[in-house]
C-alpha cells in the first residue's frame, strides 16, 4: 500500500499443499464403503460421492486437509431424491473438491458443517429455506430469504406457488 507502511505487516500470500487426490485416497481408506464414487468432472474438480452417513466425516477430513474455502452448499432435486452438494477449495491451491451425498426427499436431517466453514451457516439456512431439509446441529436454523410463515419450499421441483402473479411461461 502506498500510504504509510506499518511494520511487521507483510502481505500474506496463501500457499497450500492441498492435494485433492491424496485426500481422496485417505478418505477411501477411512470411509470404506461410505465413499461411493470418485470422479473428475473434466474441469479440474474432483467429485466425491459419499453416503449420507459418511458426509460429515468426509467434510471434516476436507477441512483438516486444508480446504478452507467454501464455494457453495446446496441441494439438487432429482424428483425421487435430493443430492446434497458441497464445494470447497483450499486458498493457495487450484484443487477444488465437490462433495456429494444422496438423500431421500423427506424425513431426513443432514449433519451441519457450519462449524467447519463460517459461510456454511448461511448457506445451510438458505438450503433449508428453499428445500425444506433440516440441518442437525445448526446453531441458528431459521428461514433466511422467505418469511417464516411461507408455505412450502420453492426450489423443490414439486413446489406449487399459491400466489401466481407470473405470466404464463414461454416453455
Amino acid at each position: 500500500m502506498t500510504t504509510e507502511a506499518r511494520p511487521g505487516a507483510a502481505p500474506l500470500v496463501p500457499r497450500s499443499d492441498f492435494d485433492a487426490e491424496r485426500l481422496a485416497d485417505a478418505l477411501a481408506a477411512e470411509l470404506g464403503s461410505d465413499l461411493l464414487e470418485r470422479t473428475a468432472d473434466g474441469h479440474g474438480v474432483l467429485c466425491l460421492r459419499t453416503s449420507l452417513a459418511g458426509y460429515r466425516r468426509a467434510a471434516e477430513r476436507l477441512r483438516q486437509h486444508g480446504a478452507d474455502r467454501l464455494d457453495f452448499l446446496t441441494f439438487v432435486d432429482w424428483r425421487d431424491h435430493f443430492t446434497l452438494t458441497l464445494q470447497v477449495y483450499a486458498l493457495g491451491s487450484r484443487a477444488v473438491v465437490r462433495l456429494k451425498a444422496d438423500l431421500p426427499r423427506d424425513g431426513v436431517e443432514v449433519p451441519t458443517v457450519s462449524d467447519l466453514w463460517f459461510g456454511a451457516g448461511w448457506e445451510e439456512r438458505e438450503a433449508y429455506d428453499l428445500f425444506g431439509v433440516r440441518f442437525a446441529g445448526h446453531p441458528d436454523l431459521r428461514r433466511i430469504l422467505l418469511p417464516e410463515a411461507w408455505h412450502g419450499h420453492p426450489l423443490r421441483k414439486d413446489y406449487v406457488d399459491d400466489v401466481d402473479i407470473s405470466r404464463p411461461q414461454y416453455f
Binding site: 505487516a9 507483510a10 502481505p11 500474506l12 500470500v13 467454501l70 486458498l91 466453514w117 459461510g119
Partner: peptide, 15 residues
Amino acid sequence: IGAQGPVLRAAGVKW
C-alpha cells in the same frame, strides 16, 4: 470467516 474480494485483500491476504 471466508472474507473475499477487497475485504480479504485489505486484511493483507494477497488473493
